[in-house]
Simulated scan of single mutants.
Amino acid sequence: MPKSNTIPVVLTIAGSDSGGGAGIQADIKAISATGSYAASVITAITSQNTLGVLDILPIPLAHIESQLDAVFQDLNIVAVKIGMLADADIINLVADKLEQYQPKHIVLDTVMVATSGDLLLKETAIGSLKDRLLPLASIITPNLPEAAALTGLAEPKDAEQIEHMVTAMRQLSTSAVLLKGGHLEASDESDDLLITQNETHRLSTERIRTPNTHGTGCTLSSTIASFLAQGEDMLSAVSHAKQYITQAIGHADLLKVGQGRGPVDHFFMLHQ
């Protein structure tokens, strides 16, 4: 008989991607692949594939609320990853429920735009995101366009401009920020900055040249939540998540899924 161990439970609150590369589907794959148990609350249904987002159907608020109550009242949820929330009403509901149930770790992926460029968060909801969810988050994980939207600054175009954004990141009402530098495609390195009030840690890997990056933000944030749920400290969780997503991107071309921007390989370890 195998030994019985209590598996840490991670809840993902996000939208569904019918193509399976991002959103809830990517989150469940990433959480499972890194050794945690994945539960989910679906906030929206997208008609989506590797070519883009065709349609978005927000889930009724009452059903989002019932999903949240169902999982929190039964499961020992250690960490929560938040992805696509679509509008201010959903943001406020999720914030209310997180304040009610108070999970130990909250990883907020500030999802605003899909890899394809499609808008996933109404611009009128950005204020609600900043006011209600940022103060609750253990860490937020914006890419450069999202960081620009959160701060009102211009999107950085080089490493020097990213450094100037660190001060603005510290002024946001959240505990830590992982500022992702993946959009600086001219660079041979893929640098992310883990920013706290007192320290900045640079996490650097060699840039992998591939168009198949669908779901990278969802996957990275879910993996951070998974490692936090397993008891790692923030720097360790983010570092291990960075290593995981780098390998998942590195194996993405082998999947050959779809005709557009394909997904990363969440289970690369099974294909080696």
Rank of each mutant, 00 (worst) to 15 (best):
T115G: 02
S36Y: 10
L133R: 04
Q73H: 05
T246D: 14
N49I: 01
D118E: 12
A229S: 15
L150D: 06
D265L: 09
L235R: 12
I208Y: 13
N143R: 13
T50V: 08
A154M: 10
Y37R: 03
V41E: 08
L193I: 02
I224S: 06
Q197N: 13
T200M: 04
I13C: 00
A252E: 14
E146N: 12
T141G: 01
P58C: 07
F267H: 14
H63I: 08
G83A: 07
N5D: 03
L57R: 11
C218I: 04
I77P: 01
V71L: 07
K29C: 04
P103E: 12
D89M: 05
I139R: 02
L235E: 14
A252Q: 14
V78E: 15
I140D: 04
A149C: 07
Q272K: 14
L75I: 09
K130Y: 02
D96I: 01
G181L: 08
A14K: 07
A241T: 04
D192S: 06
I59F: 04
L235D: 05
A186K: 15
G35H: 06
D87P: 00
K130C: 01
T200I: 12
N143L: 11
E123R: 14
M234P: 03
D191H: 00
L133K: 03
P58G: 08
D27Y: 13
H214K: 09
K157P: 00
K81I: 03
E99S: 08
L144R: 11
I106A: 01
L220R: 05
V264H: 11
P2M: 08
T196G: 03
G262R: 14
D87C: 04
A95V: 03
K122G: 03
G15Y: 11
L85Y: 10
D96T: 13
T110E: 12
K242D: 06
N198M: 03
Q102R: 15
M269P: 00
A26P: 09
A225M: 11
L254A: 14
N212P: 09
P135E: 07
E189R: 11
I249W: 14
A26Y: 12
K104L: 08
S226R: 12
D87T: 00
H63A: 05
T124H: 10
V10I: 05
S66C: 05
E206M: 01
K242T: 02
L255M: 13
E199N: 15
E189A: 10
G35F: 05
N49C: 00
S40H: 08
V80P: 02
S239F: 01
P142W: 13
N49P: 01
D118R: 07
R209N: 12
A186R: 12
G127Y: 11
L228R: 06
L150G: 01
S66R: 13
Y101A: 01
D17P: 04
T210S: 15
L153R: 15
M112P: 10
L255R: 13
H271Y: 08
K157Y: 00
E160T: 09
G152S: 04
R207Q: 13
T141C: 03
G260K: 14
L144D: 12
A125T: 12
S236F: 00
K180C: 04
I126T: 10
T50A: 10
